[in-house]
Write a protein that binds this DNA or RNA. Structure first.
Lengths: 246, 246
DNA sequence: ACCTGTGTTACGCGG
DNA sequence: CCGCGTAGCACAGGT
């Protein structure tokens, strides 16, 4: 990783256009070619370019160093009027990398294995069920009346989720397989924003907050891990898809 | 800005949970307290914390330096097993900051002033029109048949836009003011993804790609700026919404 | 302080 | 390679 502190300005063209006036900033160039220009505020860089760009160095008419980072679609040009610091460091990456917990995919996995956590006698039809308008997170069947429910799983559910579900439900209702069947929409999330819940209600979409059940599940799970301490893998079998597809 | 290269590990809890194993990484602490931990790949930090956190330093039982960055809702703990480099730099920020061009809000402003660029005899009713399900970017009226059109403006329009419009149109159709009137939905964007365009079609939402007209508008605009060359402030006064400090 | 929407979102996963 | 959806999204702007 190369770290340069320099008095510089920058111009970017590509997905949008930006101009950055003169100032002293930190420029970070990573091993994979990714570059970012930081001021002394916030987490996001002012300008940046992903890996896979072509790096070139020139000197302009005024004797300033000009760095270019180009791809076929984007260009970042950095002009340096003065160099304050330039250092290189060898970073070592551990092979585990960053381990995340509590992601949406984990939530989805858990709900697929325990559909009753959705608050009814539900049976899983399929995860990532293709609706024709994109895949819905879970498709389940309500055993009480045989109706189908398209479930969108979220960590945090905001207004956009409602439109997303409306889209999926509309897609399913157009599918011949669901001719004559009732298809409803549902949001299952750790946190459903008040306005979202209101709007969902208006659109006939059921909202289920699963944070409490999830917390208990996680507690039990870590307890189990402690007790078993890897004598045998707990088999954690996922119920296999059923219904008309399979 | 303080830049530390160290052999370290990190634990984060808050919006999610993450664990970062031991490795040599770059730690950046900015003037406002924002901190980020970078490996040598990509633009995004492995771990980070926004400004406004409480920074504390301790020594653990093994003699390692432990840095904590805490807010009421989040905690980032960084343990350092070895220090490779530690430097401080004074960055200077120009008062212009980053100037963006081609943003969605500029697009919206332009289309509000030139609704015929939407490809018909349209008249602007209102920008950011409240639908009850959130404000729609533009509400225009089609002078040919008196129908109303809810326009969602995007730089790049993807599938989610369709659900967004469906939501707005549904919201408007429920409003008493539009009782008995036709309300349609429209996407106006520089780039509409093929699948998005297809789905929008299916849902009766019109798609207009305005990239060409926008390009011409921008060209004319910069030409105008050159000609006038600041004899009088071009009245074009933008309210000067400044970025970081204020 | 919370909610809402944009972003050169970045990034990973699937086709 | 592109499309699509998530993210500890970050961040700005409004209420």
């Amino acid at each position: 990783m190369r770290i340069v502190i320099a008095d510089c300005s920058a111009v970017y063209t590509g997905r949008g256009d930006t101009k950055l006036g003169q100032g002293v900033r930190a420029i970070i160039i990573k091993e994979d070619g990714a570059v970012s220009i930081h001021n002394d505020v916030g987490n996001k860089p002012l300008n940046y370019m992903g890996k896979g760009n072509l790096f070139t160095e020139e000197i302009d008419d005024d004797g300033n160093i000009v760095w270019k980072f180009d791809t076929t679609k984007e260009n970042l040009t950095l002009t340096m009027y003065g160099l304050i610091s330039d250092s290189q460091h060898e970073l070592i990456l551990d092979d585990e990398g960053l381990v995340r917990d509590g992601t949406e995919s984990q939530l989805q996995e858990w709900l697929a294995a325990n559909p009753t956590a959705l608050g009814g006698d539900y049976t899983l039809i399929k995860r990532e069920y293709p609706t024709g308008d994109g895949p819905v997170d879970l498709l389940v069947q309500d055993e009480r009346d045989g109706s189908y429910v398209a479930v969108e799983v979220k960590r945090v559910s905001m207004l956009g989720t409602v439109g997303q579900i409306m889209r999926y439900v509309a897609g399913l209702q157009e599918t011949p397989e669901f001719e004559g069947h009732v298809v409803r929409g549902m949001i299952a999330a750790l946190d459903i924003r008040p306005k979202t819940s209101l709007l969902a209600e208006k659109r006939g979409i059921e909202c289920v907050t699963v944070s409490e059940a999830w917390r208990i599940h996680k507690a039990n799970r870590s307890l189990l891990e402690e007790q078993t301490a890897t004598p045998t893998p707990p088999a954690e079998e996922e119920p296999k898809p059923r219904g008309f597809l399979a």
